[in-house]
Design a protein around this nucleic acid. Sequence first.
DNA 1: TTAAGGTAGATGCAAACGCATGAAGATCGC
DNA 2: GCGATCTTCATGCGTTTGCATCTACCTTAA
Lengths: 159, 159
Amino acid sequence: MTRSRSRRANEAWESLLTAHASLMKRFAAEPIWGELSMREYDVLYTLSKHDGPLRLFELGRGVLLSQPALSRLVERLAERGLIERTPDPEDGRGVRLALTEAGRERQRRVGGRHAVDVARAVTAALTDEEMAQLEAIGRKLAAQGAATPAQRNRQEAVL
Amino acid sequence: MTRSRSRRANEAWESLLTAHASLMKRFAAEPIWGELSMREYDVLYTLSKHDGPLRLFELGRGVLLSQPALSRLVERLAERGLIERTPDPEDGRGVRLALTEAGRERQRRVGGRHAVDVARAVTAALTDEEMAQLEAIGRKLAAQGAATPAQRNRQEAVL
DNA sequence: TTAAGGTAGATGCAAACGCATGAAGATCGC
DNA sequence: GCGATCTTCATGCGTTTGCATCTACCTTAA
């Protein structure tokens, strides 16, 4: 790999990081969250995307949080009546997580307002083409991040 | 604004979020960080990018952390001898932050290893053109996030 | 069948975080 | 020039996080 290609990769990643931090701060400052933290909303949103119940470790893939922290975050949301936690009948170790009706309603309310802010910020900054590019690029990067070390080794071996 | 344009904006943002979480997890799992947390490294890196000393609130713009949390993170790094904190002669309220020699050396060591991982992941996922697109898109989004509410109002008034 | 190793989630505990607030200096208006 | 307001950073305090570890269950193979 050329030196400049590595450098460009790092610049692109730093650019993504900066955009992320900058916009996250802006979104967090919006007065739309009510009693929810952004992390809590993230969990409710992830559950709302999938129709069936999710396992804790599946939820963990999408959330930037340690397993114990996520376990307790879910516990708190369950105590507040937004999530229902039931033992998984197919795996005695597991838990099945699903939104309660209150949780679903809360996600919709907050999510609707948040989507407006996201749309405002992103459409103000990007053209339609750039939005499409970002979506495709994000998808590729996420797939790369999700790859297991073994898969990555195989991938490297091919190069 | 059309409904689908808003929807595309949200999909693009979600794509960025997913990529961010996915790759951050992967990078965090790499055994390169030594005694540094990624947030601590982020601060050291930000200081290393600017040659002159930085004010605390300037540092805060780039870091996704509350002001008190950043204040204490800097305090801990100063206690460990990686950052030097001196009162700002031009503003009695302020603090000037700079890397010590040990801090600079530590940033270089860890940063070098981290850059290798970033390059591996990003170059494996993206073409050169996509990397360039991501860099440009991130720059635009960051600028949008950094705009003050007043600036955004003016911007909207024009539309 | 059962022992060995692996995986899912919970818990103890110290460290770190966010919110609210305080202290001290800067800035603006009259 | 001086009080009112704003800005910058620090601190008290309750909450949340991460690391290490534990328990319970699943899986594999002899």
